[in-house]
Amino acid sequence: MGTPGETPPRGRAVITKEPIEVDRLIMGAHNPNSGAMVTFLGIVRDDGILSIEVEAFEDVAQRDLEEIHELVGRKYPVHCLEIIHRTGQLAIGETILLIVVSSSHRKEAFSAFKEALEAIKARAAIWKKEYTADGGRWIKGNLAHEQQATREEVDS
């Protein structure tokens, strides 16, 4: 496999309340033809917070992740692409997001990873709230996603 869009990559796009099985998913992304694997973990950082809540419009967010998976899988010659996003109440150190990309070479693995991550941040129907001893505050979202941008995405 070397041509974009030739075969859909292995792997899934999933939004889940369950803890992400990081090791299993990374091991599963190995492929004899893969010379590069990019793995990314988004982790709850200790910014003086107690925990974080990840909320999603679940059906829509699931579809968003699947569309991103399909788009990236079609654009880049990747062997495996895993996109797993947690929801619910998460403690410091827990994994919010896992992206794993395996491909023949590092260049397309990094490019595919970056595009998947940026697309998730730009449009997946997901929100995060940080809890501190003083209460909760919603993390500022993506203000660039304006109505015009939505129209262009829908039309494309």
């Binding site: 419009f57 829509v60 996003h85 997001l97 941040k121 129907a125 979202g141």
Partner: peptide, 22 residues
């Protein structure tokens, strides 16, 4: 469509504030 679409009985309208996934 925000102004032109006419809603029907049982429709579900969803309002999404700026997203912050990832």
């Amino acid at each position: 469509e925000y102004e032109t679409l006419i809603l029907s009985e049982g429709d579900e309208l969803a309002l999404l504030p700026p997203v912050a996934g990832g």
